[in-house]
Simulated assay, not measured.
Amino acid sequence: MSTSLQPSAPISSLTLTVMGSINLDITATANRLPSPGETVGGGVLRQQPGGKGANQAVAAARLAGSSRMVGAVGHDEAGQNLLSAMAAAGVDVHDVSRADAATGTALVLVDGEGENQIVVCPGANGAVNVDGVTFDDDEAVLCQLEVDQHVVLEAARRAKGFFALNAAPAMSLIPELLDRCDLVIVNETEYELIPALRHAPLVAVTYGGEGSAIFVDGERVAEAPAVRVTEIANTIGAGDAFCAALVLALRSGLEYSHALAAANAVGADAVRDASSQPALKPLEHYIEATRSSLAAGSAATK
């Protein structure tokens, strides 16, 4: 672990670098998902930017005003379009390399309730590396596991500031990588599938409609309820938006429960948007919107 959560800083002054996957999402939306061997008609097809890394970098830029992306795309039109989309959202893409492989692609099926099935073709994401990438002393770094875990480990070794890992998709973690994490973020299924997280210093777990919680050395020390959403358009980008928001909220000095509540509110906004890289308000909006509910909850327990 590299640094403390204690220092407080304005959101706009925080630097978040995201290393991870960049994909073209090809999404078919239908009333329901097909069973094996079944054809479901009446779908709507769309193509949009995606990939957990890119989703988190774009969310961070929209929440804090800017972010940086470390990743790889192909020399194809899809790669150029994805770079342009990230840059337009406020992401610094100078550390995104061009690989001799097709840009990563995700084939996504989404039903009328926002549930999804995804097949990922990694392509250029297999070429992601940190050669020539430097990290500042006060820079927060957020990674996931859609790129090679040994590359993630090398990023953790080089990160001088705060290092966060969204351990998705779930897999056994290299012990050194877990040791170097200041924060691990997972959903409840991933938490069950990675037993080593029971002993990690700081873990945030999301529970869908049941909200989220933070565990310190295996002990549940903070939680926040989910924000009720009646109309769900797409759940794909919600977890990624939550990750970016939580890292930024904690780095700004918010205490655990308030940081979770703000990140939950960001995730709720994300599921209302059909895009995997949804439009979001500045993080200060979500922090202020959840401040009164936290105060009310605290008063009710006295």
Rank of each mutant, 00 (worst) to 15 (best):
S97T: 15
A102R: 12
T103W: 12
T103V: 03
G104H: 08
T105N: 01
A106G: 12
A106Q: 07
L107D: 00
L109E: 13
E113P: 00
E115Y: 04
N116P: 09
N116M: 05
Q117P: 00
Q117K: 07
I118P: 10
V119I: 13
C121K: 01
G123M: 02
G123D: 05
A124E: 09
A127E: 14
N129C: 14
N129F: 05
V130F: 14
D131V: 12
G132S: 05
V133I: 14
V133S: 12
D136R: 15
D137P: 02
D137Q: 15
D138T: 12
A140H: 05
A140M: 08
Q144T: 00
Q144I: 03
L145K: 12
E146T: 03
V147C: 12
V152E: 09
L153A: 11
A155C: 14
R158C: 06
K160L: 11
F162T: 04
F163G: 04
F163N: 04
A164M: 03
N166H: 03
P169L: 02
A170V: 01
S172F: 01
L173R: 06
L173C: 09
P175D: 05
P175N: 07
E176N: 12
E176V: 07
E176Y: 10
L177R: 05
L178Y: 06
L178Q: 13
D179Q: 13
R180G: 03
R180A: 02
L183D: 02
N187L: 02
E188A: 15
T189D: 10
E190R: 05
Y191C: 09
L193N: 14
P195S: 10
A200T: 04
A200Y: 09
P201F: 01
L202D: 07
V203T: 09
A204S: 12
T206F: 13
T206C: 12
Y207I: 00
G208A: 11
G208T: 10
G209N: 14
E210R: 15
E210Y: 13
E210L: 13
A213Q: 11
A213S: 14
A213Y: 05
I214V: 14
I214H: 10
D217V: 00
D217M: 09
G218Q: 05
R220M: 14
R220W: 02
V221N: 04
A222N: 08
A222C: 07
E223G: 13
E223T: 10
E223Q: 14
A224L: 07
